[in-house]
Design a protein around this nucleic acid. Structure first.
Lengths: 173, 173
DNA sequence: ACGAAAATCACCCTTTTGTACGACGCGAAA
DNA sequence: TTTCGCGTCGTACAAAAGGGTGATTTTCGT
């Protein structure tokens, strides 16, 4: 019996014990409420439902707990044999999903102006208002106004979500 | 609504339907057996136990199904003999719209934990810290901590840019 | 059983964003 | 010519996010 197995066994028993305790408490609670609330009619269905729901939830939790280890695949990094020097960073470019086609119908439906589309693209690039200011040669207030209008037209109240929604609607790449 | 989300939704409803049907059958079965076997004494405990056990099992199964990792594909780094010349830029053509494959090597290189990866995905979905709080069942402070670590590890100082960079590095879809 | 890593939470402070106003100039269309 | 869309800019306040530090609890591998 290795310590690890020992630990696992203990954990298992903890689970079982917890399980039993909860079950016992539940049954007791049901017995008590039976006399307190006098719920007689359809009691079996009601109790069954309650028990089922609670234990199903517990089962989900337990299931996630016990099956987690197996599904979590650990990736070990194997040292790479390097005969010569390798550039510090090797980036693999992966062209995705062909050329992007903007949904112009959607754009005009939303009433997005060209300038606002620009702002949207810079939002998607993760630029701050200040950075957009520098790229667009306008004041920060102007940027805020444009961004605000984009948010109003697309819907959400946060730029992150605006970017996500804009991507889904094919407004930006 | 992407097809994938659609699929997930359909699967969820199938689960719920199955769940309900099993529950109904179980209750009916119990009602029948009640008259057949005339088990009256301690019947509540017995029925409770049966229902609990069955639904706990179902819960485990459901939990495993729901929380199962969608991508079982793991990218492993293997020892390779590197030829003398290393092109600075390597272009790899990939068939369009292939399933997303997380660059696990990159993930572990950055030292991103599973929880942090979750947060990253929710960031990409455009959720605010408060919304993440509700989805992850943790306090807002915890969310901020996780997000902060993600930012520290990936690099930028804004969540919008973190999402963009994470996409480029194939950390998220 | 122990230590390391991960996850959780709190506090405080600064910076960035979001919201709500109003205002001005310009060019095209009515 | 007047109106209107668009781009520009401002102020002021509210809300959210970023940043640093420290602490406790869970989890997990050995």
């Amino acid at each position: 019996m290795t310590p690890a197995q020992d630990d696992a066994r203990r954990a298992m028993w903890r689970h079982i014990a917890l399980y039993g305790v909860i079950g016992g408490l539940l049954v007791v609670a049901l017995r008590v409420t039976e006399y307190r609330w006098l719920i007689i009619d359809r009691s079996l269905e009601i109790y069954g439902g309650i028990v089922a729901a609670l234990f199903a939830g517990l089962g989900v939790w337990l299931g996630g707990r016990v099956t987690r280890k197996k599904t979590d695949i650990v990736v070990k990094e194997v040292p790479v044999e390097v005969p010569v020097e390798i550039p510090v960073e090797v980036r693999v470019e992966v062209p995705v999903t062909g050329p992007f086609v903007r949904d112009d119908a959607r754009v005009s439906a939303l009433g997005l102006t060209p300038r606002e589309l620009e702002m949207l693209e810079m939002l998607a690039a993760g630029l701050s208002n200040r950075e957009i200011t520098e790229k667009a040669f306008v004041s920060e207030n102007t940027v805020k106004t444009h961004v605000q209008r984009v948010l109003d037209k697309i819907g959400p109240r946060r730029r992150t979500q605006a970017v996500q929604m804009a991507r889904e609607q094919r407004l930006i790449a």
